[in-house]
Design a protein around this nucleic acid. Structure first.
Length: 908
RNA sequence: GGGCGAGUAGCUCAGUUGGUUAGAGCGCCUGCCUUACACGCAGGAUGUCGGGGGUUCGAGUCCCUCCUCGCCCACCA
């Protein structure tokens, strides 16, 4: 066995053996829901963008998923981790557009068909690379089921969903102001238009009153360029300052267009001047006001954000401004108004500006026709599911965010003016008014038989993603084996950024199309940040390439570091300038495991060992009993940290709802056992035993092998490669559950050995304390490593224990022990140093029985006093009978607690 | 503007329903290449648990208040 673990050499081969053995493949027939004998456990992988490259966010997210999936696979569930990619409409189209720009072309030079063809080719050639990269970090997804949101199968699901919702009246064509990206030339949903706080200018403009030479109204606006689209000025109906002007007219500066002054409750008299310009085609609120007052809605900008006389605008935009970019136009208008003294002032103004989430361009509100999904009916069951515990969201605080969003849900604009995506399945007749929404291609008008043309728009990428849990399993074929076997799924693990984009909508889709929640647990991970708490990103140059980490330290080091370092939902800080330091915890632990393995192979050898079940209690040493007890406790603690895999009764009960999936806690529990207990103590105690001949050597071999076997099982979900590699080399136990791969070996079950176990644990702890105490003497008095010290003890009880394990203590602390030599104070030992000098030192834990007893007596006495006063209060101070029930209950609980604690102390 | 979260050792974070002396990793100090491991071993130092007030026999934990960060949402032009 090599002295140094080389992950680069082993990981790839191990992974290929897993794949060849088919252990990542889920089998519908084995699912209990499909006549099998295993509980299904299903995780849907958030499909990365087909063009994405692996970054630490993926690394973190997919490691979490893999840990959970591997855990359930070992427990014996029929486990499916469903992978796939997303065609990522805008993101992918932007990439191709950039390529074209580099060639000096635009998409219009190619035309729609050629553009889509080119994108398809690009995706076929370079797309999905990220899924191959995920294999390098050990992801145990069922690659045979890899899905793609734009595949023929999933396209069927997308059309089915659209048509069903349309037929139910939940999809409609809407004419309203939406968010428009002038760079991507498409509309966006509310979620795709992100707010950012910006300092802009608030301009005060003078709007002259028509038919009154010297009078004017001051209007505050942040976007003066929209004034040519103004159709009214609005004031609050109760505003005394302006009441007399309602019904009169004002003139738009520069263009001198007459617009009415109207009254509307929407206006806040306290803000700005209390007068608002109404631009219905370029502001969502103004649109509402415009509708209420039946005002015209002129569009005064072209799709690309340049000034233009669009629909209903006639010639409102002055000729010299037509064609100017909106921001350039703003500056020119402000300069003009300054000259004509129609600009009354400019002040700095903090406000939120919406930006395109893909290209960061400032979004322009724009009146247009789009397809919308009516969300309120879909949101209702999704809201109820989280409220009643059918679905839990971890960490808990995100549930409030989720609920808040769904309670204020607004309709979802699903049409995009792009070329890359699912074409809207709607056909318009060229000769009559017929509109046909269809699951299949339409070639002629169903009403008049005339020629038809399909809607030019494509659907929002998320309109295919939200179907992922059902479409990847075969929906709309409700009898598909996969759907029957694996739907609903179990855990959904993703980043909080897409809680609304994706998670909430999947829940809605689950109820809308299959009347069942798609999963019962949503686990939201934190964000990966650098040491300055800045989110890692390639563009900022503070990213870490997970593949670099895998190359240098191995996938296990990456995985362990990420899992151990991340509290539930907490951000993970890593230093991109010092990978060595960042991933040291994982790498060091992997090395530790490797070296334990080397010791085992060197000392235990490879000849078969007995199983621990057949070892009699009287064959075990104190150390054996202790480590088996620790193993048992570790298994129990580990299971507790992982929690229940699914709600037992279909809904999460309060006590289990927010517990479990504490992966960092689980990793720490396992690490502590392996490093602090097995390596630092137990393994040391076996050194003398194993090399000696005889039965005890066999016992030590068996226990050590068993303990390490179980430790590897526990750690396998977190560190799959090194644990599998080591496990393969373990000496064969004469066991029944030996199988070919650790990846499918049974999950450790607790089995306590005997009732005296607890006592063994306590006794070994005393031995450990003694060893530590001796070591401390050696360190404090600088006793050279080669020299032995002698410890003299007085107390008979402690001496007996000490003496019983003198050999062990001596071995672990390089000391010899003599008993009852001369008087020393209680709680201390007398040590004779190599130079003959004698010191009296406190010897914690071991010999301090007297002090311990005194302390316990003191505590018991104190508790008794407190109990008395409590009892007195309950009985005499009027709690009983008169106090609220809750108070009495609380006091009684306290009383019970103290009584229990008193009993525990007395027992000691 | 509304909602939520965080502030615990130099750094990153654990601390379950209030209960012995507040923990871990990394870093730091001292001594060790002890026959698995220097990516290691042994020993050690370090916290007014953000400030203040309150409830309690007892508060990192519960309540109030203030300060500082962060996140989500939002139609004040």
């Amino acid at each position: 066995m090599p002295a140094q673990y080389d992950p680069g050499q082993t990981e790839r081969a191990v992974y290929e053996r897993w794949v060849d053995a088919g252990i990542f493949s889920a089998d519908e027939k084995r699912s209990r829901r499909n006549g099998g004998d295993r509980d299904p456990f299903v995780v849907i992988m958030p499909p990365p963008n087909v063009t994405a490259a692996l970054h630490m966010g993926h690394g973190l997210n997919n490691t979490v998923q893999d840990v959970i999936v591997r855990w359930r696979r070992m427990v014996g569930d029929e486990t499916l981790w469903q992978p796939g990619t997303d065609h990522a409409g805008i993101a992918t189209q932007n990439i191709i557009e950039k390529q074209l720009a580099a060639e000096g072309k635009t998409k219009f030079d190619l035309g729609r068909e050629a553009f889509v063809a080119r994108t398809v080719t690009f995706v076929e050639q370079t797309g999905g690379e990220i899924l191959r990269q995920l294999r390098a970090i050990g992801a145990s997804a069922d690659w045979s089921r890899t899905a793609y949101t734009l595949s023929p199968e999933l396209s069927v699901a997308v059309r089915e969903a659209f048509v069903q919702l349309y037929e139910r009246g939940l999809i409609y064509r809407g004419h309203r102001v939406i968010h428009w990206c002038p760079r991507c030339l498409t509309s966006l949903s509310d979620e795709e238009a992100e707010h950012t706080e910006e300092t802009g200018n608030l301009y005060r403009l003078r709007y002259a009153l028509a038919d009154a030479d010297s009078e004017y109204l001051l209007v505050a606006t942040t976007r003066p360029e929209t004034m040519f689209g103004d159709v009214a000025l609005a004031v609050h109906p109760d505003d005394e300052r302006y009441r007399h002007l309602v019904g009169k007219n004002a003139l738009i500066p520069i263009s001198e267009v007459r617009i009415p002054i109207i009254a509307d409750e929407y206006v806040d008299p306290a803000f700005g001047t209390g007068v608002v310009k109404i631009t219905p085609a370029h502001d969502a609120n103004d649109f509402e006001v415009g509708k209420r007052h039946s005002l015209p809605m002129p569009v005064i900008m072209a799709p690309d954000g340049t000034m233009a006389n669009g629909v209903d605008a006639e010639s409102r935009v002055p000729a010299d401004l037509v064609g100017a970019d909106r921001f350039e136009a703003r500056e020119r208008i402000v300069r003009t108004l300054e000259k004509s003294r129609q600009l009354a002032g400019v002040q700095q103004h903090q406000h939120a500006v919406r930006h395109c989430y893909r290209c960061d361009t400032v979004v322009e509100p724009r009146l247009s026709d789009q397809w919308f999904v009516k969300m309120e009916p879909l949101a209702r069951p999704a809201l109820a599911a989280v409220r009643d515990g059918t679905i839990r969201i971890l960490p808990e605080r995100w549930e409030a965010v989720y609920v808040n969003w769904l309670e204020n849900i607004r309709d979802w604009n699903i049409s995009r003016q792009l070329w890359w995506g699912h074409r809207v399945p709607v056909w318009y007749c060229d000769s009559c008014e017929q509109v046909t929404v269809s699951r299949t291609e339409v070639s002629a008008c169903e009403k008049c038989g005339g020629a038809v043309h399909q809607d030019e728009d494509v659907l929002d990428t998320w309109f295919s993603s939200w179907l992922f849990p059902i479409s990847t399993l075969g929906w709309p074929d409700k009898s598909s084996a996969a759907l029957v076997a694996f739907y609903p799924t179990d855990d959904l693990i993703t980043a909080p950024e897409i809680l609304f984009f994706w998670v909430a909508r999947m829940i809605m889709a689950g109820y809308a199309f299959l009347d069942a929640a798609p999963f019962h647990t949503v686990y939201l991970t934190g964000t990966v940040r650098d040491m300055n708490h800045v989110k890692m990103s390639k563009s900022l140059g503070n990213g870490i390439d997970p593949l670099d980490v895998v190359r240098q330290y191995g996938a296990d080091a990456l995985r362990y570091t990420v899992i151990a370092g991340m509290g539930m939902g907490a951000d993970l800080m890593l230093d991109h300038r010092d990978l060595e330091r960042s991933f040291a915890p994982g790498r060091n632990f992997a090395t530790k495991l490797w070296n334990i393995g080397r010791f085992l192979l060197g000392n235990v050898g490879s000849s078969p060992v007995r199983t621990v079940d057949e070892l009699r209690d009287d064959e075990l040493t104190l150390a054996d009993r202790w480590i088996l007890g620790r193993l048992n406790a570790t298994v129990l603690e580990g299971d507790a940290a992982l929690g229940s895999a699914r709600p037992e009764s279909g809904k999460w009960q309060p006590e289990e709802r927010y517990s479990g999936l504490r992966l960092s806690e689980f990793a720490e529990i396992a690490r502590r056992f392996v490093w602090d207990d097995v390596a630092d103590w137990y393994l040391e105690t076996t050194k003398g035993r194993i090399t000696a001949a005889g039965n005890d050597s066999e016992v030590a071999r068996a226990v050590l092998t068993h303990v390490f076997d179980y430790a590897l099982r526990l750690l396998h979900p977190v560190m799959p490669f090194i644990t599998e590699t080591l496990w393969q080399r373990l000496p064969a136990p004469v066991a029944v559950d030996r199988c070919e791969f650790l990846a499918v070996a049974p999950w450790p079950a607790p089995h306590p050995r005997s009732e005296s176990e607890e006592r063994s644990m306590a006794r070994f702890d005393l031995v450990r304390d003694a060893v530590s105490a001796v070591r401390r003497i050696r360190s404090d008095y600088a006793v050279a490593p080669g020299r032995t010290i002698e410890v003299l003890l007085q107390s008979a009880a402690s001496a007996a224990l000490f003496n019983e394990h003198a050999a062990l203590i001596g071995r672990l602390s390089r000391s010899s022990v003599r008993v009852g030599a001369q008087p020393v104070p209680a709680g201390a030992a007398h040590a004779v140093l190599p130079d003959g000098s004698e010191v009296i030192v406190p010897l914690g834990g071991l010999v301090d029985l007297a002090k311990e007893c005194a302390k316990l007596r003191g505590e018991v006495a104190q508790l008794d006093t407190q109990l008395e006063s409590l009892t007195a209060r309950l009985q005499n101070q009027g709690f009983v009978g008169r106090a609220p029930a809750a108070v009495v209950e609380g006091e009684r609980k306290k009383h019970g607690e103290w009584t229990r604690r008193r009993e525990q102390l007395a027992e000691k």
